[in-house]
Simulated scan of single mutants.
Amino acid sequence: MQDSSSSGDSGKSTTHFGFQTVEEVEKARKVAEVFHSVAAKYDVMNDLMSAGLHRAWKAFTIARADVRTGMKVLDIAGGTGDLSKAFAKRVGPSGQVWLTDINDSMLRVGRDRMVDAGLLLPTAVCDAEKLPFQDGYFDRVSVAFGLRNMTHKDRALAEMRRVLKPGGKLLVLEFSRVAKPLAPAYDWYSFNVLPWLGKKVAGDEESYRYLAESIRMHPDQETLVDMMRHAGLSRVRYFNLTAGLVALHEGVNLG
C-alpha cells in the first residue's frame, strides 16, 4: 500500500505512521524519535532480526551499483554507513561519497564508524525530499531501508533523480512483499518476535512494532516501479531477495 497523504476535516495533511493516521508534521517527529531511540543498537538489531541476511542484501546492492574509481556517490538515509563504507573503498581518493541521514543520532554513529575505519567522508543531515545538492552531481544515489520512512516518497524519488548525472543510477533497497506462501509465518514473526527482540535488546518494543507496520504500508514491488518511472527514471527494474522479503529497485536517469 502506498504511503499517501490526505486532508482531514481540520484541513491539515495526514499520512501514515505505521498503521496510525497522523498529521504530516507529526510523522517526521515520530520517525525521528524511533531512530534516536534505536541508533545505538541499530547494527546489533539488524543482525538479530535478519539472521545476518541484511549483509547479503547490501552486498548485492553494492555489486549492482557498479561503483568505480572517481565516481561521486550519494548514500541517502545512510545510517550507520554500511553502503558508504563499501562505496568509499571503490571510488578511491579521486571520488567522493556523501553519507547523509535526516536523523543526527544515526549519522553520528555512521560518522564514528567511518572514522574508526580510517575513512573521512563528507556527511550531512539532510531531508531526502529537499536534497542540498546541485542538479546532475552524482553518478550513483542509494537509499537502503529508508524510503518507507519518508512522508512524500514521490518527492524524494524526484529529488534523487534530479541530483543524478545523465546515465547515473538510483538504487533503492527496501522491505517489500514477501511471497504469499511465506506471508503467514512472516506476519507472525514481524508482530511477535520483532517487538520482543526490540524490548529485550534495544529496550524499545514500540519502535520495532512500528518497523513491522511500516513495512506493510510501503508500496509493493510493482507500485514502486511505477513511482520511479513517474519520477523520471528509465530502465526501472527490481530484484526480489529472500523470496521478496526485500527488493532492490534500480533506475537510470537518461537526462
Rank of each mutant, 00 (worst) to 15 (best):
E159K: 02
V201A: 00
P219A: 00
D104E: 14
G198V: 11
R216Y: 10
A202H: 01
R209T: 15
A185K: 12
N149W: 03
Y208C: 07
L164M: 04
A144R: 03
D135N: 14
H152Y: 13
L170A: 14
S105G: 01
D220G: 15
K153P: 13
R162Q: 09
D187K: 12
E205L: 11
I215Q: 00
G146D: 04
R216K: 13
P122Q: 06
Y186N: 09
D139V: 01
S142I: 12
K200F: 13
S190D: 11
R113C: 00
L121N: 08
G203H: 01
I215F: 00
S207L: 05
D187L: 13
V141I: 06
E205F: 08
P195V: 13
K180P: 14
M150K: 08
M150E: 14
E129W: 01
R161A: 14
D220S: 06
N192R: 15
D112C: 03
G167H: 04
P195A: 12
P184Q: 05
S207P: 09
A179I: 11
P195Q: 10
L131P: 10
S142L: 14
F175W: 01
L131E: 04
L173M: 07
L121C: 08
W196N: 11
W188D: 11
P122T: 06
K199Q: 15
L147P: 08
A179C: 10
S207I: 08
H218C: 03
R177W: 09
F145Y: 13
K180W: 13
L197F: 09
R140I: 12
S176L: 00
W196D: 10
G168H: 04
G118P: 07
Y210D: 08
L164P: 06
D204M: 01
S142G: 10
N149E: 01
S190I: 09
A156I: 03
V125K: 11
R111G: 03
N103F: 02
N149P: 11
L173G: 00
D204R: 05
R177Y: 07
K130T: 15
R113T: 00
D135K: 09
H218F: 15
P122H: 07
D139F: 01
L107T: 09
A158W: 09
V141H: 01
V163F: 03
W196S: 15
S207F: 03
M160A: 14
M106V: 02
L211A: 07
